[in-house]
Amino acid sequence: MIDRRGASGLALITVVALSGCSSHSSGVELRGSDLGVVKIGAPFEDAVSKISTVLGEPTSDPATGRLCPGSSREVAWRQLRIGEQGGLLFGWVSTSGDLRSNLGIGVGSRESDLQEAYGDKVALLPATTGVNSFSIEKLGLAGNIDASGIVSALFSGGCGA
Rank of each mutant, 00 (worst) to 15 (best):
R5T: 12
G6V: 15
G6F: 14
A7C: 12
A7S: 14
A7T: 15
S8D: 13
S8K: 13
S8G: 05
S8V: 14
G9R: 14
L10V: 05
A11W: 15
A11Y: 12
I13K: 14
V15M: 14
V15H: 14
V15D: 13
V16T: 09
A17M: 12
L18Q: 14
L18R: 15
L18E: 14
S19K: 07
G20C: 07
S22M: 11
S23P: 02
S23V: 04
G27W: 13
V28K: 05
V28P: 03
V28D: 07
V28N: 01
E29G: 01
E29A: 02
E29K: 04
L30P: 04
G32L: 09
G32I: 06
G32C: 01
S33C: 05
D34T: 00
G36Q: 04
G36F: 02
V37G: 03
V37L: 02
V38K: 03
V38D: 02
K39N: 07
I40Q: 00
I40M: 04
I40H: 03
A42C: 05
P43D: 13
P43E: 13
F44D: 11
F44K: 15
E45G: 00
E45P: 02
D46A: 02
D46E: 11
S49Q: 01
S49M: 01
S49H: 00
I51C: 00
I51F: 00
S52A: 00
S52F: 00
L55V: 00
L55E: 06
G56R: 04
E57T: 10
E57C: 04
P58F: 13
P58K: 12
T59D: 08
S60G: 07
D61C: 07
A63R: 11
T64A: 08
T64E: 12
L67G: 06
C68P: 00
P69L: 04
P69Q: 07
P69S: 03
G70D: 07
G70L: 08
S72P: 03
S72D: 03
S72C: 00
V75G: 06
R78E: 06
L80N: 08
L80Y: 04
L80C: 07
R81N: 10
R81A: 10
G83L: 09
E84F: 09
Q85W: 10
G87W: 06
L88N: 14
F90Q: 05
F90V: 04
G91A: 02
W92G: 03
W92T: 03
S94Q: 11
S94H: 09
S94M: 11
S94A: 12
S94N: 08
G97P: 04
G97S: 06
D98H: 10
L99C: 11
L103H: 06
L103F: 04
G104L: 08
I105C: 05
G106H: 09
V107W: 06
R110Y: 09
E111W: 11
D113G: 10
D113L: 12
L114K: 14
L114W: 14
Q115W: 13
E116F: 15
E116R: 15
E116V: 15
E116H: 15
A117M: 15
Y118V: 12
Y118N: 12
K121L: 10
A123T: 09
A123Y: 10
A123H: 12
